[in-house]
Design a protein around this nucleic acid. Structure first.
Length: 153
DNA sequence: GCCACCGGTGGC
DNA sequence: GCCACCGGTGGC
């Protein structure tokens, strides 16, 4: 039989990103599920910090739940200790809030949004509905490869 | 040498 | 005690 492995688009991330679940098949941790992400250009990611480093300012992962691949606003409360550079919360809106404000629910488990008005992404982004419950995001002239420094004025 | 995979543990 | 994260290595 084929191995339990699936790679799907991840709706909480920009178009082209994929999420994969791999079930451990041996050892003490057999049955444990490992989650990996693949960037549009095929780079593999095995942790949220790794993802965050790669994305830099291009996308805020504060509400991104790595394991489930979904947006979880509760993560904001449990502020993980931020090392080195400290994140500026004064000027951002979570992706889920953004979806909410657009009348898009992409996940049933979203908690009510915290009302905020701010620019969402630090990079131009287009969000549009395709089908029921699906959201696509496209970065305008987004870099193909590594997101380099984005100029914030 | 690479990388998929499981182990070990720090931080909670 | 759990689990997110990443080290290390076996198998290629």
């Amino acid at each position: 039989m084929s191995i339990e492995k699936k790679k799907y688009e991840c709706s909480a991330l920009p178009k082209g990103w994929q999420r994969e679940e791999v079930i451990r098949k041996s050892g003490l941790s057999a049955g444990k599920v490992d989650v990996y992400y693949y960037s549009p250009n095929g780079k593999k990611f095995r942790s949220k910090p790794q993802l965050a480093r790669y994305l830099g300012d291009a996308l805020d992962l504060a509400t991104f739940d790595f394991r489930s691949g979904k947006i979880n606003s509760l993560l904001l409360r449990k502020n993980k200790k931020q090392r080195g550079t400290q994140f500026d919360y004064s000027n951002f809106l979570t992706y889920s809030n953004y979806c909410f404000s657009r009348g898009v629910r992409n996940d049933a488990s979203l908690v009510p949004p915290i009302r905020q008005t701010a620019s969402i992404f630090k990079q131009p982004v287009t969000v549009y509905k395709t089908q029921e419950g699906k959201v696509k995001t496209d970065f305008k002239h987004g870099p193909q490869e590594k997101p380099k420094q984005v100029c914030h004025q």
